[in-house]
Structures are given as C-alpha cells and as structure tokens.
Amino acid sequence: MLRVTDLSCERGGLPVLTGIGFEVATGQALILRGPNGIGKTTLLRTLAGLQPAVAGAVTFPEDEGAYASHADGIKTALSVTENLTFWADVYGAALPDDILETFDLADLADRLGGTLSAGQKRRLGLARLGVIGRKVLFLDEPTVSLDGFSVKLFAKWLQKTHLAGGGVAVIATHIDLGLDAPDLDLTPFKADADAGGGTDEVFL
C-alpha cells in the first residue's frame, strides 16, 4: 500500500538521508529506528508531504495519508470533544461512538484542552487519528509522555482497529510497542554531508 523508492531527503538545505527504499503491505506497520538526529522526523515529514523529497518517490493511495508529530495541535480553549469534532469536520468524517472510550478519554470529554496533563493531551492527539479515518499513518514518537497503560491502549488500537482494518503505519519510536512489525534502521542510509543534493545547490 505504501512504497518508497530510492528516497533522499534534506533538512535545512543539508542532505540527511539517501537511498531509502521500502514497502509496507496493507495491514502492516514499519518501525523506524536510529539514533537522535539520524533523520526519522525528516523522513516522516517528507513521506507526509510537508517537505519535498530531494530524489525518489513515495506512493500511496491519494488522500489517505495522515501525519502526527510531537505537537498534537490541541486547542487549549476547546474541550476534548470539540477538539475531536473539529478534526472530524475537517476530514468530513463522523465522530466514532467509542472513540473516547478507546483512548480512555470518556471522563475528560468536557474538559478544556488547556487543563489536560501532558499524557492526556497525547491521548487526545492520538484519538484524532482514530477520528480522521486515514489509512496511511506517519507517526513521529507517538508514545512520548504516555504511561505504560496508555501505550498498551494505543498499541491495541493500532493493531486491532487500524492495521486490522486495512491500514498501514510508519512509526518512529524508541520503545517497544509490542507490535508484530519489522524494524528499519536508518543508520545505513545516512547521507554524506558533503554529497550535495540539497535544494540550495543550484545557488552555490
């Protein structure tokens, strides 16, 4: 469902990763591994289309990609339900009935986003993924500030609902989510900083 061929990406005009290729079949996930600064976030942003690729191609069904990063996009002056309803409206989707229970947010439904703890905010940010109904997810450190119970909750949703429902996911994480998913270590794809290929090259 997701195919990446010979992809190179850059960050701030410097090449970061080069020659990446992988395929993720329907119902599968891929875990990105590698030390800090290797380019996991850059790769995910490139896959999601937030920044252009230097070379190579990313193919997945049109209008099926979604991106989630460290920043959850939660509005502090809106309640938990209002935050989710907004994203449902943007994606033209209906709010699933059990979404609050799935992410253990039922007791917080009417709380304002600004009064949530870091972990609760994170759960709300992840619940957005359950609302928008996209098949191809690019997740950047989805479990930051989650406790063990919430990590299991999220992993369960990912496995039982998202992947079982025909989705795919590319996840950058340092912890073990307990998913049956292959790892991709990005270290071999590290670009030579002098190799060029950044978009500034034509100006230099």
Partner: peptide
Amino acid sequence: LDYEDGSLALLATSPM
C-alpha cells in the same frame, strides 16, 4: 498559535 501547537502542520496535511 496554530503554528506553535502544531495544528498548522496537521491542517496542511488534511484534505482541506
């Protein structure tokens, strides 16, 4: 505000 809390990036990747 949308830039700081990340919702601008989420909007940019949304169907809108």
